[in-house]
Protein backbone atom coordinates (compact mmCIF):
# COMPACT_ATOMS: atom_id res chain seq x y z
CA UNK A 1 0.00 0.00 0.00
CA UNK A 2 2.76 2.37 1.04
CA UNK A 3 4.79 1.31 -1.97
CA UNK A 4 1.96 2.00 -4.39
CA UNK A 5 0.96 5.36 -2.96
CA UNK A 6 4.57 6.51 -3.23
CA UNK A 7 4.82 5.13 -6.75
CA UNK A 8 1.65 7.02 -7.62
CA UNK A 9 3.12 10.23 -6.17
CA UNK A 10 6.15 9.93 -8.43
CA UNK A 11 4.00 9.06 -11.45
CA UNK A 12 1.71 12.05 -10.82
CA UNK A 13 4.74 14.30 -10.49
CA UNK A 14 5.96 13.25 -13.94
CA UNK A 15 2.51 13.61 -15.46
CA UNK A 16 2.06 17.06 -13.94
CA UNK A 17 5.44 18.24 -15.23
CA UNK A 18 4.60 16.95 -18.68
CA UNK A 19 1.16 18.56 -18.56
CA UNK A 20 2.84 21.91 -17.83
CA UNK A 21 5.56 21.74 -20.48
CA UNK A 22 4.38 19.14 -23.01
CA UNK A 23 8.04 18.79 -24.02
CA UNK A 24 8.11 15.03 -24.36
CA UNK A 25 4.87 14.56 -26.27
CA UNK A 26 5.53 17.44 -28.65
CA UNK A 27 8.97 16.18 -29.56
CA UNK A 28 7.77 12.61 -30.04
CA UNK A 29 4.87 13.67 -32.26
CA UNK A 30 6.94 16.02 -34.39
CA UNK A 31 9.49 13.28 -34.86
CA UNK A 32 6.76 10.85 -35.87
CA UNK A 33 5.41 13.27 -38.43
CA UNK A 34 8.86 13.79 -39.88
CA UNK A 35 9.33 10.05 -40.36
CA UNK A 36 5.96 9.74 -42.10
CA UNK A 37 6.85 12.65 -44.35
CA UNK A 38 10.23 11.15 -45.25
CA UNK A 39 8.70 7.75 -45.87
CA UNK A 40 6.31 9.28 -48.33
CA UNK A 41 9.00 11.05 -50.33
CA UNK A 42 11.56 8.27 -50.14
CA UNK A 43 9.24 5.53 -51.40
CA UNK A 44 6.11 7.15 -52.89
CA UNK A 45 4.35 4.00 -51.78
CA UNK A 46 1.21 2.60 -53.39
CA UNK A 47 -1.41 0.89 -51.26
CA UNK A 48 0.14 -2.54 -51.72
CA UNK A 49 3.52 -1.31 -50.49
CA UNK A 50 1.91 0.47 -47.55
CA UNK A 51 0.32 -2.77 -46.51
CA UNK A 52 3.67 -4.50 -46.76
CA UNK A 53 5.91 -1.94 -45.09
CA UNK A 54 3.37 -0.24 -42.81
CA UNK A 55 3.90 -2.36 -39.66
CA UNK A 56 7.68 -2.09 -39.83
CA UNK A 57 7.57 1.62 -40.51
CA UNK A 58 5.11 2.26 -37.70
CA UNK A 59 7.29 0.49 -35.20
CA UNK A 60 10.46 2.19 -36.40
CA UNK A 61 8.68 5.47 -35.78
CA UNK A 62 7.38 4.38 -32.39
CA UNK A 63 10.79 3.18 -31.29
CA UNK A 64 12.83 6.16 -32.34
CA UNK A 65 10.21 8.59 -31.07
CA UNK A 66 10.12 6.59 -27.84
CA UNK A 67 13.90 6.76 -27.45
CA UNK A 68 13.63 10.51 -27.83
CA UNK A 69 10.98 10.72 -25.13
CA UNK A 70 12.53 8.32 -22.64
CA UNK A 71 15.86 10.07 -22.75
CA UNK A 72 14.19 13.00 -21.02
CA UNK A 73 12.87 11.00 -18.12
CA UNK A 74 16.12 10.91 -16.16
CA UNK A 75 17.89 13.76 -17.91
CA UNK A 76 15.14 15.99 -16.50
CA UNK A 77 16.03 14.87 -12.98
CA UNK A 78 19.62 16.11 -13.19
CA UNK A 79 18.74 19.81 -12.86
CA UNK A 80 18.96 20.59 -9.12
CA UNK A 81 19.81 16.90 -8.59
CA UNK A 82 16.16 16.10 -7.93
CA UNK A 83 16.82 12.40 -8.39
CA UNK A 84 18.94 12.43 -5.24
CA UNK A 85 16.05 14.22 -3.57
CA UNK A 86 13.78 11.32 -4.45
CA UNK A 87 16.37 8.81 -3.31
CA UNK A 88 16.55 10.56 0.07
CA UNK A 89 12.87 10.13 0.77
CA UNK A 90 11.71 7.00 2.57
CA UNK A 91 10.68 5.18 -0.59
CA UNK A 92 11.88 1.90 -1.99
CA UNK A 93 14.03 2.88 -4.94
CA UNK A 94 12.13 0.48 -7.13
CA UNK A 95 9.07 2.67 -6.67
CA UNK A 96 11.04 5.52 -8.28
CA UNK A 97 11.67 3.16 -11.18
CA UNK A 98 8.09 2.02 -11.39
CA UNK A 99 6.65 5.54 -11.20
CA UNK A 100 8.86 6.74 -13.99
CA UNK A 101 8.32 3.62 -16.05
CA UNK A 102 4.54 4.03 -15.87
CA UNK A 103 4.86 7.70 -16.84
CA UNK A 104 6.99 6.73 -19.84
CA UNK A 105 4.53 4.00 -20.76
CA UNK A 106 1.64 6.47 -20.76
CA UNK A 107 3.53 9.07 -22.82
CA UNK A 108 4.56 6.46 -25.36
CA UNK A 109 1.06 4.99 -25.69
CA UNK A 110 -0.47 8.43 -26.14
CA UNK A 111 2.07 9.42 -28.78
CA UNK A 112 1.63 6.08 -30.55
CA UNK A 113 -2.15 6.46 -30.66
CA UNK A 114 -1.84 9.85 -32.31
CA UNK A 115 0.85 8.74 -34.76
CA UNK A 116 -1.21 5.68 -35.68
CA UNK A 117 -4.26 7.84 -36.44
CA UNK A 118 -2.20 10.22 -38.57
CA UNK A 119 -0.62 7.31 -40.39
CA UNK A 120 -3.99 5.80 -41.11
CA UNK A 121 -5.39 9.08 -42.42
CA UNK A 122 -2.37 10.12 -44.48
CA UNK A 123 -1.84 6.75 -46.14
CA UNK A 124 -5.41 5.57 -46.19
CA UNK A 125 -4.33 2.61 -44.11
CA UNK A 126 -7.32 0.63 -42.85
CA UNK A 127 -6.69 0.06 -39.16
CA UNK A 128 -10.18 0.49 -37.75
CA UNK A 129 -11.60 -3.04 -38.12
CA UNK A 130 -8.53 -4.43 -36.31
CA UNK A 131 -7.95 -1.58 -33.86
CA UNK A 132 -8.72 -3.64 -30.73
CA UNK A 133 -6.00 -6.18 -31.43
CA UNK A 134 -3.65 -3.42 -32.50
CA UNK A 135 -4.16 -1.76 -29.12
CA UNK A 136 -3.38 -5.03 -27.32
CA UNK A 137 -0.26 -5.66 -29.40
CA UNK A 138 0.92 -2.09 -28.95
CA UNK A 139 0.44 -2.27 -25.21
CA UNK A 140 2.43 -5.50 -24.90
CA UNK A 141 5.23 -4.22 -27.12
CA UNK A 142 5.43 -0.83 -25.47
CA UNK A 143 5.42 -2.32 -21.97
CA UNK A 144 8.60 -4.28 -22.70
CA UNK A 145 10.13 -1.34 -24.49
CA UNK A 146 9.34 1.18 -21.74
CA UNK A 147 10.50 -1.02 -18.89
CA UNK A 148 13.92 -1.70 -20.39
CA UNK A 149 14.07 1.86 -21.70
CA UNK A 150 13.45 3.46 -18.33
CA UNK A 151 16.25 1.48 -16.73
CA UNK A 152 18.66 2.21 -19.57
CA UNK A 153 17.67 5.89 -19.56
CA UNK A 154 18.80 5.97 -15.92
CA UNK A 155 22.07 4.34 -16.99
CA UNK A 156 22.53 6.68 -19.95
CA UNK A 157 21.79 9.79 -17.88
CA UNK A 158 25.10 9.19 -16.07
CA UNK A 159 27.16 9.19 -19.26
CA UNK A 160 28.69 12.01 -21.22
CA UNK A 161 26.53 11.46 -24.32
CA UNK A 162 23.21 10.18 -23.10
CA UNK A 163 21.36 10.90 -26.36
CA UNK A 164 23.67 8.49 -28.19
CA UNK A 165 24.17 6.02 -25.40
CA UNK A 166 20.49 5.21 -24.93
CA UNK A 167 19.79 3.97 -28.49
CA UNK A 168 23.11 2.12 -28.68
CA UNK A 169 22.33 0.16 -25.51
CA UNK A 170 18.64 -0.10 -26.08
CA UNK A 171 18.05 -1.34 -29.61
CA UNK A 172 20.06 -4.59 -29.39
CA UNK A 173 18.62 -5.35 -25.96
CA UNK A 174 14.97 -4.97 -26.96
CA UNK A 175 15.39 -6.63 -30.33
CA UNK A 176 13.25 -9.65 -29.38
CA UNK A 177 10.44 -7.27 -28.46
CA UNK A 178 10.80 -5.32 -31.69
CA UNK A 179 10.83 -8.49 -33.77
CA UNK A 180 7.75 -9.95 -32.13
CA UNK A 181 5.76 -6.77 -32.13
CA UNK A 182 6.39 -6.08 -35.81
CA UNK A 183 5.46 -9.60 -36.81
CA UNK A 184 2.34 -9.53 -34.65
CA UNK A 185 1.32 -6.19 -36.15
CA UNK A 186 1.92 -7.45 -39.66
CA UNK A 187 -0.18 -10.56 -39.02
CA UNK A 188 -2.93 -8.40 -37.55
CA UNK A 189 -3.10 -6.10 -40.56
CA UNK A 190 -2.57 -8.81 -43.19
CA UNK A 191 -5.35 -9.37 -45.74
CA UNK A 192 -6.94 -11.58 -44.48
CA UNK A 193 -5.65 -11.33 -40.86
CA UNK A 194 -3.49 -14.27 -39.79
CA UNK A 195 -4.72 -14.73 -36.25
CA UNK A 196 -2.74 -17.86 -35.24
CA UNK A 197 0.51 -16.12 -36.22
CA UNK A 198 -0.56 -13.03 -34.35
CA UNK A 199 -1.33 -14.99 -31.19
CA UNK A 200 1.97 -16.82 -31.46
CA UNK A 201 3.89 -13.56 -31.39
CA UNK A 202 1.67 -12.01 -28.73
CA UNK A 203 2.43 -14.92 -26.42
CA UNK A 204 6.13 -14.39 -27.01
CA UNK A 205 5.71 -10.69 -26.32
CA UNK A 206 3.99 -11.44 -23.02
CA UNK A 207 6.87 -13.75 -22.06
CA UNK A 208 9.48 -11.08 -22.89
CA UNK A 209 7.49 -8.54 -20.93
CA UNK A 210 7.74 -10.70 -17.84
CA UNK A 211 11.51 -10.97 -18.20
CA UNK A 212 11.94 -7.32 -19.09
CA UNK A 213 9.83 -6.04 -16.20
CA UNK A 214 11.41 -8.25 -13.55
CA UNK A 215 15.02 -7.74 -14.56
CA UNK A 216 14.97 -3.91 -14.23
CA UNK A 217 13.16 -4.09 -10.90
CA UNK A 218 15.95 -6.34 -9.63
CA UNK A 219 18.81 -4.21 -10.90
CA UNK A 220 17.55 -0.65 -10.58
CA UNK A 221 18.95 -0.06 -7.07
CA UNK A 222 22.44 -0.65 -8.40
CA UNK A 223 21.95 1.99 -11.06
CA UNK A 224 20.86 4.69 -8.60
CA UNK A 225 23.37 4.14 -5.82
CA UNK A 226 26.02 6.84 -5.54
Amino acid sequence: MKFWSQTAAILMKDLLTEYRTKDVLTSMLLFGLLVILMFNFAFEPDSEEIRKFGPGLLWMTFIFAGLLGMNRSFAAETENDTLEGLMLSPVKWSSIYLGKMLANLLFLLLAQAIILCLFSILFNYGIWPRIGWMAAITFLGTLGFASVGTLLAAVAANTRMSEVMLPVLMVPLVLPVILSVVLATAANFAQPPEEPVMFFWMQRLAAYDIIFVILPLMTFDYVLEK
Binding site: K13, L16, T17, R20, T21, E79, N80, D81, T82, E84, G85, L88
Partner: peptide, 11 residues
Protein backbone atom coordinates in the same frame (compact mmCIF):
# COMPACT_ATOMS: atom_id res chain seq x y z
CA UNK B 1 20.16 20.12 3.25
CA UNK B 2 22.74 20.24 0.49
CA UNK B 3 23.93 22.95 -1.83
CA UNK B 4 21.69 21.43 -4.48
CA UNK B 5 18.08 22.43 -3.85
CA UNK B 6 16.34 19.16 -4.93
CA UNK B 7 13.50 21.30 -6.32
CA UNK B 8 11.60 20.62 -9.55
CA UNK B 9 11.81 23.87 -11.51
CA UNK B 10 8.66 23.11 -13.48
CA UNK B 11 6.49 22.63 -10.39
Amino acid sequence: VAHQTYLYPGL
